[in-house]
Design a binder for these strands. Structure first.
Lengths: 160, 160
DNA sequence: TATTGTTATACTCTATAACTATA
DNA sequence: TATAGTTATAGAGTATAACAATA
């Protein structure tokens, strides 16, 4: 059980992290396309994903995921391949050029982060990543228990 | 020094946290106004703040902060009081009704978070809050070293 | 009838630029 | 001339709703 004080403090830091992420994204933007970079990274990491998977991964509506994927296709970075098991859906995957861009962009983001926490001990960075992962897991579990979002069934990939 | 692997993993978890925060905000929205809740909480916590302080706190442009504050004023939750030392700026503060709303909304957010991490040990929640705070500090320090954003001088309140 | 996905539309939020007022 | 803030405008991103196709 977590005390009210700790929850309040964590809430505060999450708000601060929201601002941090916004700035991080903004600084990552110049010199490259912005919309759908997160999708690009997910496809780079996970390989073939359906539109519904992407929507669930980023907790956005399917329509938003569809639009972002279309954007990646227009840039020649992603393509849809037919899904023989279910012809309603497709598997989205990166083109070779998309893979190249994904690698380049991911490296830039990682370097930006590395620069900021250069003086951190290794174990702190690992601990933060671990705790954030568990926070996401706890939140996803809560949403399943409270079925206010019937459109989200929490069936698929969650890791990113 | 943090390894490339840890940085990559942390980057991944930050992306996931971005999605988490988006959902958290969305679930907090119904039953109340959305825009500017973060400002409301900041004013509730810090008391009188200038528009520039708010912009810096949330890493948004002054114009965005100005607009959000105007929104709070229209709802009767905030007001500007003159600053005798510098008549260009004002101190924004909450009205009694604004204080009430801020308390109610903060409590709801805290409960939502508390529900999600109910089975966490106290020390993990505290550790996560601490690490997120240090992440923000590290990022702010980096931005000062690399003066690409002359409009941000990193002089004021930073805690939220 | 339920599910997967697309498109059209409206809304929220932010950045940029031009502007006013004060230091 | 520099700083604090406001307003107008444009852009990015998301949600809602209506729709088509398949299971």
């Amino acid at each position: 059980m977590v005390s009210q004080e700790s929850c309040g403090e964590l809430l505060l830091q999450l708000s601060s992290t929201d601002a941090l992420i916004r700035t991080f994204k903004r600084e990552l933007r110049p010199g490259g396309p912005r919309g759908g970079f997160a999708l690009l990274a997910a496809l780079h990491r996970c390989g073939g994903l359906r539109v519904g998977d992407l929507a669930e991964l980023f907790e956005i509506d399917v329509s938003a995921a569809s639009r972002q994927l279309a954007d990646l296709e227009e840039r020649g970075w992603a393509e849809r391949v037919p899904n023989p098991q279910d012809r309603r859906s497709w598997h989205a995957r990166l083109t070779p050029e998309g893979e190249r861009v994904a690698r380049e962009r991911t490296a830039r983001a990682r370097d930006l982060l590395a620069e900021a926490i250069a003086d951190w001990p290794e174990e702190d960075a690992a601990a933060l990543a671990d705790l954030l992962g568990r926070l996401r897991t706890s939140f996803d579990a809560r949403r399943v228990r409270v079925p206010d979002h019937p459109s989200r069934t929490a069936s698929g990939a969650k890791g990113l």
